[in-house]
Design a binder for these strands. Structure first.
Lengths: 347, 347
DNA sequence: GTGAAAGCGCTAACAC
DNA sequence: GTGTTAGCGCTTTCAC
């Protein structure tokens, strides 16, 4: 029974390496640790390294963690791992950390938002060195929690209102400006907005960006109706589109805060027998995979989620390794991708 | 500097609880542990629980792990976290484990297949109690490695040839049978197959399933050409489709081993000025998200990946908690989803 | 520059 | 039933 567990680990301990190298365990520890290696004589380091290599020694991070408090483990909290934007984010994060010798624990909050704190406590119990949060709302108690525990954390995709924690986000205002510019250039003058949940920075900032962009073209806000949604889903997008069209029948274009919402708008248009882009132009946001294959191919604003993940990982690593980095946001530029869902309005 | 770390954990130790409850630390340990609680007098258990609750005590799994070898941590290896089939699988896995008090470490193998072993060693170093592998090929050294270490592991999505480890997969033969039945019913008699990489069970089994299904309809195999692909990507699908069409110009339908390959076939058809389903019917496999929105909406074989993840989690938990479960596969039924990419061949 | 000793927080023999 | 003791594998004072 004991032997089962024993076989699992490489099983050679610091002490064994020490015996083989003819030195004390603590010397081996120092020799094998980049930060303390300089305390040990060069020839001893060499001898220890050789012995360790021969015996296939691997440091036990769990034991080390017990002593030092650091674990080489980081946690990532995502709101919904099935949502296609989080794949690339996770990919970026884990690529970065894998190269730095960290492992990544992923916690999927799923539909149960209240479990967030619980999940984080679980991660802390496992002594994660830091947290990447893709879940936070604009004013999230989780931020206070991390702050009060002095747990290094960085936000990704969604930022927090007060910028108390570093965040990597896309330039939401720029994205909406690009979208609106494009529609106005095509000749649209009455443009609706499918707004994301306002408790998240993406929903809030994109809505504001939309309105600012509208004003920048000298269009009145009354010609730029917004409809809120409760979640970034096709269903919500369809429902909000119906409301938008009911309230403003003369609309010729919709700038959406999110691709999934835009695809929901497709559904709504289909139900109403309207055609895109002939009757209504639609533009999404995010450029999630496969949008070039939907019909019509969706014009959208591209965000590099993988890049976002990588950056967030870098920031977190910096925060872990020296606590003195002032919290600052990294804002990634977004970029218009024109496909087939936008066209000039009917004359 | 030390205080930073200290604040992070709830910081109240077994010993402190023991003092407060007026008993010894080991008694607290026993009282708070489901398996050993019965050794302690009921009133003492109550007293200990009360003290623990008052002090906000949380067991430190890292320290416990050092002693017991178990960590309440499981690892999941995925080949490519961006691929939309793995979102649902991970979601199923983590849903199950979250409810059992386990945390899930996700390792994304990415494009570097050789890193697999290294990643697994990292997971073992963190003392994972078990592994879920979504990466294995039909004859994978990783399986030997897990076996030799007696590390509980279960395969998901892809099975191993010799069934030495339990696996949760979909019924690949059934899926292809459904696909071919559907095409034959529509009147197709010359049907091509876009085969997945044969080193993975999905590619191998679906190809075999395809041929068996063809034979079951009395069609000769020479009227059922197959083209291999190197990976489940649109690009590979497009290239293989070109080869298929070049070699067998009289083909009227393609049954693909995978949705992404099928979408690649769309690309190839478009390049050739052919129309789907008018010229060629296409059927996918997996039913990944958003297929109802591509044009034409893709007929496919549905697999419940989330269910797959959940089942795999269950199997792994069973394997962790008692080593005596004989390895067996769970084969989930698949289901035909008819959309717009299949029709009768031109008269 | 290196060894000795203590201890991270917990659990499991072993006593009584 | 409960306390005592030892130790998981490592790092880090403290000596010398």
């Amino acid at each position: 029974m004991e032997s089962d567990k024993d076989q699992r680990r490489s099983n050679v301990t610091l002490k064994q390496v020490a015996e083989r190298a003819g030195v004390h365990a603590s010397t081996v520890s120092r020799a094998l640790n980049a930060a303390t290696r300089s305390m040990v004589a060069e020839d001893v380091v060499a001898r220890v390294e050789k012995a360790a290599a021969q015996m296939g020694y691997r440091r036990d991070p769990v034991a080390a963690s017990l002593r030092t408090g650091r674990s080489k483990l980081v946690g990532v909290l995502v709101p919904d791992i099935v949502n296609p934007v989080f794949g690339p984010i996770l990919s970026g994060v884990s690529e970065l950390f894998a190269s730095q010798g960290y492992s990544v624990i992923v916690a999927d909050v799923g539909n149960d938002e209240n479990r967030q704190l619980e999940l984080v406590q679980g991660l802390i119990a496992h002594r994660v060195d830091g947290l990447i949060l893709a879940t936070v709302s604009r004013d999230d108690p989780l931020v206070d929690y991390c702050l009060s525990r002095k747990l290094p954390a960085v936000l990704v995709n969604r930022a927090e209102m007060r910028a108390r924690l570093p965040a990597v986000i896309s330039d939401d205002a720029l994205g909406m400006q690009l979208a609106v510019d494009h529609l106005v250039e095509l000749g649209h003058r009455t443009i609706g907005h499918l707004a994301g949940p306002s408790r998240h920075s993406t929903g809030y900032l994109r809505r504001r960006g939309f309105q600012l962009a509208i004003l920048s073209h000298g269009i009145e806000l009354q010609d730029a109706p917004c409809q809120d949604t409760l979640a970034y889903t096709r269903e919500e997008g369809a429902a909000a589109t119906h409301r938008l069209l009911d309230a403003s029948p003369n609309l010729t274009a919709i700038a959406s805060a999110n691709d999934l919402l835009a695809l929901g708008a497709y559904d709504a248009l289909r139900e109403r027998g309207l055609s895109c882009p002939a009757d209504i132009s639609i533009i999404g946001h995010n450029d999630m995979p496969m949008l070039d294959l939907v019909s019509p191919a969706l014009t959208t604003v591209r965000i590099s989620h993988k890049q976002m993940g990588r950056q967030a990982g870098q920031l977190l690593q910096a925060a872990i390794e020296n606590n003195d980095s002032p919290p600052h946001n990294v804002v990634l530029p977004s970029q218009l991708v024109v496909r087939a869902s936008t066209a000039s309005p009917r004359a």
